[in-house]
Design a protein around this nucleic acid. Structure first.
Lengths: 269, 269
DNA sequence: CGATCTGTTGATATCCTTCAATTTTGGTGG
DNA sequence: CCACCAAAATTGAAGGATATCAACAGATCG
């Protein structure tokens, strides 16, 4: 799997490679999407609820989240954006954003003009499908969050979130083992899981006492992933990292051939 | 807005008309999708977790839901499928279903072969965008559910769900006022909102005593929508029923012109 | 027409919140 | 580089919202 150019692995390529075998052209095009990065500090609002959606982007470095603020000031974090994640790739179809997006740590994003998205949709069916796939993965994560909030107790919710974050980091090549950098505060974990920071703290303490995790200096290690997955009722199937069946792969290859010849145009700006 | 042929309003057309002004060809194609219906009884499993996704479909009549079963037998309902809702329109990109789908009342669905989806994606950009839009609406509803489960108490959750169901029914032309047919049992409401049937019952009783709703014989009326929306912190913006800005409409029209001439092929089988 | 599911109500249990105080960490300016 | 300040982490005690358990009535369905 070739997911780097010039020695820097590209998380977007690594992620989409879970879906299908990408051609060299595909990979070059994905790289070209990330070329013009913009840097932002921590806690910078990238998108505000109510505003007209502007350009889509890819997060190329750092960590961000989608969230909703309630009238009383409380916050619900909806999803985390990690390197390789698209944001608002098709939001221009909506009149107003229904949630906000903010960075959590210093991050880099690369804007993707609407015409670029349309061009890919029209002329690069396999990449278009790969983008669809990643949107479906995000929807699956939303559903899994609903299951966690609706049906799991505090221990189950925390265990689930830690497992998901570790598996996602692994899926983009940012972790090889069961340890990741976790720059989230306990209030942020609470805003994600519908719990108070105090209770998050108690659960984490329990997990530490039970030697299930270690967590300090923003460094998380899952010491007993099996037990944690059991506590969470976690099954990574919903992340759909297994790729598509061969038969579907052939189908996609067929689509790709039908619209050949325009690839080079798209790779350039 | 022409959303019927032969006098029968088509909920799919009504729904997508919220997004953009559909051409006569668009409407005919959408109608043709619903032609070959299949009837199912209540509580019939349409899709099972773990199975390889088969054909996509549109629900044309009735009510169904996506759900996950937990190892201990508890259930979390994820979304409701109402007439005009697609299901698994792009699920063939995944190796296995991560949740199940079942009918709640006797329902009709119309299968949509994968080739049909691809053909629309390739040759009917405006319809493809309309389908995208409806998928984004579903994702927005998932996010709203997360907010409800994470941050609202039982009264807020119940009020939110009732409001959402009424607005959705209105969006597909199945209700003109604040009353709908609500064939859900209290256990089903509990499985949706992460509450026990007992507690659902108590909240509904409260709402009845406060003259906020009336509910019997599966007939729900919101007697004070304003108050309910206040209790829920409900804002229908997330349903994105307002359509796209003119500027985007023109952009879509441009795409449509670029790929003219193949429309008739798609409308037939 | 019996059996099963749904709706309803009361009593008790429990998980998580709230409130409060203290310590630790991390960021910032002098 | 240190001092300072705000935010985060931590711990204890008390309260509240929802779950659990139990019982029964009413509705629905084969």
């Amino acid at each position: 799997m070739v997911d780097e150019i010039g020695g820097i692995p590209n998380p977007l390529v690594t992620k989409l490679s879970h879906f299908a075998r990408l051609s060299g052209d595909d990979i070059r095009l994905l790289h070209s999407l990330s070329l013009k990065e913009e840097q932002f500090g921590a806690d910078t609002t990238l998108v505000s609820e109510g505003e007209v959606p502007r350009s889509a982007f890819v997060l190329t470095r750092g960590l961000a989240c989608r969230y909703r603020l309630l009238p009383d000031g409380r916050r619900q974090i909806l999803t985390f954006l990690m390197p390789g994640d698209f944001c608002n790739i098709h939001a221009f179809l909506q009149r107003a954003m229904d949630h906000s997006v903010t960075t959590i740590v210093p991050s880099r994003i690369a804007a993707i003009p609407r015409e670029r998205v349309s061009a890919i949709a029209a002329r690069r069916p396999r990449l278009a499908e790969a983008i669809w796939w990643s949107e479906m993965q995000e929807a699956a994560m939303l559903r899994e969050r609903i299951v966690a909030l609706g049906r799991r107790n505090a221990r189950g919710r925390v265990a689930y979130l830690l497992c998901e974050l570790v598996w996602r980091q692994r899926a983009i090549g940012l972790s090889e083992d069961h340890a990741i950098r976790l720059p989230l505060t306990q209030p942020e974990l609470g805003d994600t899981l519908g719990l108070t920071p105090v209770h998050i703290n108690r659960v984490l303490q329990e997990f530490r006492r039970e030697d299930l995790i270690s967590l300090d200096q923003r460094r998380l290690a899952l010491l007993d992933m099996g037990k944690l997955q059991e506590i969470a009722g976690f099954n990574k199937a919903y992340l759909h990292l297994e790729g598509v069946p061969d038969e579907v792969q052939r189908f996609l290859d067929g689509l790709e051939r039908d619209s050949a010849g325009e690839a080079e145009v798209l790779g350039r700006r």
